[in-house]
Amino acid sequence: MSAPRPDRRSGWVIGRVAGAPVVLAPSWLLAAVVLTLVFTPSVRTWTGTGGGVLPYLVALVFVVLLFASVLVHELAHGLVAKARGQQPREFVLTLWGGHTTFGGAAPTPATSALVAVVGPVANLLLAGGFLLLADHVAPDGSVLRAMAWAGAVANGFVGLFNLVPGLPLDGGRILEAAVWAGTGDRHRGSVVAGWTGRVVAVGVVLLVLVRPYVTGGTPDLVTVAWAALIGAFLWSGASGAVRAGRTGRVVDAMTITTVGRPAVAVGVRSSLAQARATAAAAHAAEVVVIAPDGRPAAYVDADAAARVPADLAGSTDVLAVATPLPMGTVVDGSLTGDALLAALSRASANGPVMAAVVDGRVVALVRTADVVAALRR
């Protein structure tokens, strides 16, 4: 599975491909141990071996091969993405298999779909290779033949399951790209594929729980636990896609008008009365105090200003009721969408209130809380 993510997770870097690190997450060790223990009884059945260390070693080798197949899947995503101009940031093997992260989203629906589909295709090709090994190379009844068959089945399942059309699976990314191409709206694609992913998550759990009853049995506790974990993982990823799609629409429509409060500028020597009159004339909600060098230096604290009686406003210096604006809390008010959000994010690191300027003129005051509220809406 693939997704743009901002930060590299902790883990061990075991190499670099396409300019990106290959990372083993700590959770991979847990997965390797658990899967080795889970597969060991099957290895005994396949090979006819009894106790001892050999079945565990064979199971461990199979688990390593399985994760190697997952890595091939992820490398396919990254290599094709780089060929299409989308730089991979890291390849990570985790408890849930793996994922590829990128520095940004795919630029076109075609790139998104192509990057998504090559992962499952790589697994299906591996499944074919393992099948040929089992049928034409490995001796009958050998450990190699059993492992080759297991590799073919595992890769075939991973390839086909990832093509199911629901995020966070690769098939969901393909569906997202199709909706994006058909409507011109990337975010609608995310919402549609996210909702489909939720249906898939519920369907996986129901299939595991209901199928044993249909065949006259009952689901065992381990199977139910795995189904619940996988269903929860899929539901979480699908829900994240729905939220991301809705938030993306808000970001695309974001302007200083939608997140800021209209503001006017006054000089540092102005009185509170002058500031009030200037704001009233411009129908502005905020007042920004400009330093002698032309930099927005402070903003009037509405609560502090409200406590000043009207008859004292003329003799009250505006700085007496103002809060300083730290350096770096000025943004370009002509920006929109992702560019505006990125500028606000950088400026908010210096202070929670920012002045927006267009052509050297203060047009608005933006509070981080208002931006967060807009994104949530």
Rank of each mutant, 00 (worst) to 15 (best):
S2P: 03
A3E: 10
R9E: 05
W12I: 15
G15A: 08
G15F: 08
P21I: 13
V23H: 08
L29Y: 01
V33G: 01
L35G: 08
L35H: 04
P41M: 04
V43M: 12
T47C: 14
G51D: 06
L54N: 03
L54K: 04
A59I: 02
A59E: 02
L65S: 13
H77L: 07
A83I: 00
P88H: 01
E90Y: 00
G98M: 03
G98R: 10
F102L: 03
T111C: 03
L114V: 14
V117H: 05
A122I: 05
A122Y: 04
L125V: 15
L126V: 07
F130H: 08
F130I: 02
F130K: 01
D135Y: 09
D135E: 13
S142K: 14
V143C: 10
M147N: 03
A152D: 13
L160K: 04
N162M: 09
L163R: 04
G172Q: 00
L175T: 01
L175M: 05
G184R: 12
D185R: 14
D185Q: 09
R188L: 15
G189P: 09
G189A: 12
V191T: 12
A193F: 05
A193C: 09
A193Q: 09
T196S: 14
R198P: 00
V202T: 11
G203Q: 07
L209N: 09
R211P: 00
P212L: 11
G216D: 07
P219E: 12
V222T: 15
T223Y: 06
T223C: 00
V242R: 02
R243I: 01
G245M: 07
R246D: 05
T247H: 00
G248E: 12
V250F: 09
V250K: 15
V251T: 08
D252E: 15
A253C: 02
T257K: 13
V268R: 10
S271D: 01
L272D: 09
A273P: 03
Q274V: 04
A280E: 14
H283G: 08
A285Y: 10
A285R: 15
I290Q: 01
G294P: 04
R295W: 05
A297P: 06
A305S: 12
A306W: 03
A306E: 12
R307I: 00
D311E: 11
G314T: 04
T316R: 12
D317L: 01
A320K: 03
P324G: 00
M327F: 14
V331H: 15
T336H: 05
G337H: 11
A339Q: 15
L341G: 09
L344W: 09
A347R: 06
A347D: 13
S348N: 03
N350S: 14
G351M: 08
V353I: 12
D359S: 11
R361S: 10
A364C: 11
A364S: 15
L365H: 13
L365E: 14
T368L: 08
T368E: 14
V371H: 05
V371D: 13
